[in-house]
Simulated assay, not measured.
Amino acid sequence: MRLYALCDQEMLDKVGISVEKFIEIAKSYNAEIIQYRNKSADISLIKQQLIQIRKLYDGFLIVNDAYELIEFCDGVHVGQEDLHTIDLDTKKAVKILRNVIGKDKILGISTHNEAEVLEANEMDLNYIGLGAYRDTTTKKDVCHVLDDKLDAIAKLSKHYVGAIGGVNLNDKFDNVTYHVIGSGLLK
């Protein structure tokens, strides 16, 4: 199993764990990627957190949504809804993002079904997040859970796939590259 650790500030605040402690835990599980997500902070705080994480962690660092901070990390991850704030045409939004962040940076997007995975196959991406696998406490708006269909849908992707949403360390997948785990690392 390869681990992609989701460092969600709202979740950390809820359970009373610092970013530093989360990074320590993620490193103890040999996380290859850490994504920092903070949906409520201003851009200057997100920048400060990325700088702090970089001091503590030398693996791949991804920022959620805040592509304007790409110089402080290795890549950006954007959800479907956030892509639509860039352009209503998802393919065009990804092209715009790729132009902004450059070819040498990692770009990933969230997908939730077969149609979105097939559309993502036509985009210049490094990976997709696919899910939700199960219900999750880190996202309030999960409306469709893939359960045992996740692995079959992942097989359709030409990109690396990270299983997202309710994934834990014991889950087994055949067609998934990364287990994306946030709160599950804290248990």
Rank of each mutant, 00 (worst) to 15 (best):
K95S: 09
G129Y: 11
V117W: 04
D104V: 01
I106G: 11
G129L: 05
V100W: 00
G75S: 01
I62V: 15
D65M: 10
T137V: 10
A115F: 03
H84K: 13
D87M: 09
H112C: 09
G102S: 02
A115I: 12
I70W: 01
L107V: 10
I101G: 08
D82C: 14
D89I: 07
V100M: 05
K95Q: 10
V76C: 02
D135C: 04
L69T: 03
T136G: 04
H112I: 11
Y127Q: 14
N99A: 05
L97T: 02
Y67L: 01
K103H: 14
E68H: 01
L61S: 14
L69P: 06
I106T: 13
F72D: 10
G131C: 07
G129D: 10
G75H: 01
V63L: 09
E119W: 00
S110D: 11
Y67I: 02
E122Q: 15
V100R: 09
I106R: 12
T85D: 06
K105W: 09
L61D: 14
H84Q: 14
I96A: 06
L107M: 04
R98S: 11
L69G: 05
D124K: 10
T111E: 06
L97P: 03
R134I: 04
D124V: 09
E68V: 06
Y127W: 11
A120V: 14
K91V: 05
T85M: 06
K91W: 00
L125Y: 02
K91M: 01
G108V: 14
S110I: 08
L88H: 02
N99F: 03
E114Y: 04
M123N: 11
L69V: 04
T137P: 01
T85Q: 11
D65L: 12
D104P: 01
L83S: 09
G102A: 09
K92C: 06
L107R: 03
I86G: 10
E116R: 12
L107I: 11
R134W: 00
L61P: 11
A132R: 11
N64H: 13
V78W: 00
C73Q: 03
G131N: 08
L88F: 02
T90V: 07
Y67V: 04
